[in-house]
């Protein structure tokens, strides 16, 4: 009955709100932060939260809130571009494999996917940093490469079930080729799946970016990132535990928001759950 009162499901609203807050902070950080993000105030090291420093200051006297805002930018940018890589490469591959299902091409694409799955993103990141050195771009690559097989699989799976339907056969009888059918009939009908998977990969990307920058394989100083803020806080953890709490909370709330939004979107877009 809650459906009657809320036009949208509550988790979706909550998730979208959380996501919007952090995305908003990230965008805002381009124009304004409470303190310049690189500003160090040695006199004001390790201050607890106060009116002048809302979330306190870190070991070097950085304003934690300003760092968090710019950190949001790093996290979201890395995860978003990584999703973009996954979609840009994975979706066409998945569509192609489904259009030629059962062929050698399909088999090759899917086996290639399996192979990438054997290299978790951290291992890819390790390989890349071992060669090119650490950095945000390499983190994006490491996470993005791992996203490719995810999107390829979801696309292929969704497309395969559509290819058995009669409207695809009707389009074939109307003389349309596989590429055109994939664009006109397959892609619009798996868009739901891709949107939901996109939010999931987005949130996984934020977690992965945090992990990579925590171990020093992500964005390098002076670019702030949530993972490195946590790594920096670790040596001070008994002295200033709050430094370890805020960046973690930021990660949790962002990921939670994205996941709630993904679940909400899935329910909203699932034709089986939608009323006629």
């Amino acid at each position: 009955m809650s459906r009657m009162r809320f036009p949208l499901p509550l988790p979706l609203v909550l998730g979208a709100a959380l996501t919007a807050i952090f995305a908003g902070l990230a965008v805002l950080s381009f124009f304004w932060t409470p303190y310049p993000v690189a500003a160090m105030d040695i006199a004001a090291r390790l201050k607890p939260p106060s009116l002048s420093h809302w979330l306190g200051t870190d070991t070097y006297g950085h304003d934690v809130f300003s760092q968090l805002m710019v950190g949001a930018r790093t996290s979201i940018a890395v995860a978003l571009v990584a999703v973009g890589i996954g979609v840009a490469a994975g979706v066409p591959l998945g569509l192609w494999a489904a259009a030629r299902r059962g062929s050698l091409l399909d088999e090759t694409i899917m086996r290639g996917n399996d192979l990438i799955f054997a290299f978790p993103s951290l291992v890819i990141a390790i390989l890349i940093t071992a060669i090119l050195g650490p950095g945000a771009v390499n983190a994006i690559l490491a996470i993005g490469i791992f996203n490719i097989p995810v999107f390829a699989r979801v696309t292929r799976g969704g497309a395969l079930s559509l290819w058995t339907l009669d409207y695809i056969r009707a389009a074939q009888v109307a003389g349309k080729g596989a590429a055109r059918i994939s664009l006109e009939h397959v892609l619009p009908n798996i868009a739901n799946l891709l949107i939901v998977q996109g939010t999931i990969q987005f949130s996984l990307g934020i977690l992965a970016e945090a992990g990579l920058s925590y171990v020093g394989l992500g964005a390098q100083p002076p670019v702030p990132s949530w993972g490195r803020m946590l790594a920096d806080s670790q040596t001070m953890i008994s002295l200033a535990p709050l430094l370890a709490v805020f960046p973690g909370l930021a990660i949790v709330l962002t990921v939670l928001g994205l996941n709630l939004m993904g679940d909400g979107l899935r329910d909203l877009l699932d034709p089986r759950l939608r009323r006629k």
């Binding site: 946590l230 973690g248 996941n259």
Partner: peptide, 14 residues
Amino acid sequence: QLGIAVPNFWFAML
């Protein structure tokens, strides 16, 4: 839902 959102290394720090 919460557990999925928590990075394991941060959970470890806590």
